[in-house]
């Protein structure tokens, strides 16, 4: 099994509109991450761009459609497509979500939440095993941004993720924005969540923006919208994590209302400064 091995630097979610800027003024970007499903056509500009980027950069392939949290079997055709993509680009890392998006063969195109029980744990573990068997690589599983809870849940999310990693050998992708969003939505302290998270198996971090609304009772409800700069409390949470575990691959995701390249690059540079400070502190 090929281990996930992204450089311990700041990376950026690749958007085609930035391609020309990235090529014309090469900057030290630690790695690029792409959504797997956007590169499943046979050819054309998506592959031409990704092939070019891959020449000079580390790559993370991030799936958004495998539905690992489904109680139904994984889509074998889709898994085969992921295999083709990973074989073609040999990414440093492949990751997916603790969520489901397909039900009865209907693809719902959203990362939907699941109850955390012994039964769902067994299913997710089987699915992660299956993915790693087919891809012959270690995968990373990402913690979700959730808006509600299930009455039947009996296991804490952090324990659930730790147990998946322990049983399958997968790594975890810690999305600190998701932590902040979910903690706020469930009236919990994000720092407590981090304290309970199995940080030793984190191989990548996600940073992104969120938007704010309220629930039926007027309580804060944060939406994982990926359409703004990373917010201050999320940066603070990130610094806490990096302070504890040292530099780790850190990705800035910005998927909607995508800004001009320099804005996104500066976000990544801000993450890089935090990584550099942590590295210096460790060396001292």
């Amino acid at each position: 099994m090929i281990p996930s091995r992204l450089p311990r630097r700041a990376g950026v979610g690749f958007k085609p509109e930035h391609f020309a800027d990235i090529l014309s003024a090469p900057e030290p970007i630690g790695f690029f991450e792409v959504h797997a499903e956007n590169y499943m056509g046979a050819g054309g500009p998506p592959h031409a761009q990704l092939g070019k980027l891959r020449e000079d950069h580390a790559l993370s392939i991030h799936g958004v459609g495998l539905s690992i949290g489904s109680m139904q079997p994984l889509d074998r055709d889709h898994l085969a497509r992921l295999k083709v993509l990973c074989d073609r680009y040999q990414p440093e890392s492949f990751s997916e979500h603790l969520a489901w998006s397909t039900h009865d063969s209907v693809f719902l195109n959203d990362l939907l939440p699941l109850p955390y029980t012994e039964e769902t744990l067994t299913h997710v573990v089987e699915h992660v095993d299956q993915v790693q068997d087919v891809l012959k690589r270690q995968m990373l599983l990402e913690n979700p941004a959730t808006y509600l809870l299930f009455e039947e849940s009996t296991i804490e999310e952090t324990v659930f993720l730790a147990e998946i990693a322990r049983r399958t050998g997968c790594g975890l992708l810690l999305d600190v924005n998701n932590v902040f969003v979910a903690a706020t939505n469930h009236n919990l302290d994000a720092r407590d969540y981090i304290a309970r998270f199995p940080l030793e198996v984190v191989r990548e971090i996600h940073l992104s923006g969120h938007s704010e609304t309220v629930d039926d009772l007027g309580a804060a409800l944060l939406i994982d919208s990926h359409d703004t700069p990373v917010k201050d409390p999320v940066w603070a949470l990130y610094e806490t994590v990096i302070g504890r575990i040292g530099p780790v691959a850190s990705l800035v995701e910005w998927d909607n209302d995508v800004p001009a390249w320099p804005v996104l690059r500066d976000e990544a540079m801000a993450a890089q400064r935090i990584l550099d400070a942590a590295a210096r502190q460790r060396a001292a």
Binding site: L108, N109, D110, L112, P113, P115, Y147, L148, L149, F150, E151, E152, N185, H186, N187, L188, V214, D215, D216, L217, A219, L221, I223
Partner: peptide, 24 residues
Amino acid sequence: GLTAWNSRAPERRYGVYRNNVSAS
């Protein structure tokens, strides 16, 4: 079977998923 810290009928919270699916 859905719930939230402050309500056992989290209509708007579930609505976020409805809206995400439809909009996406």
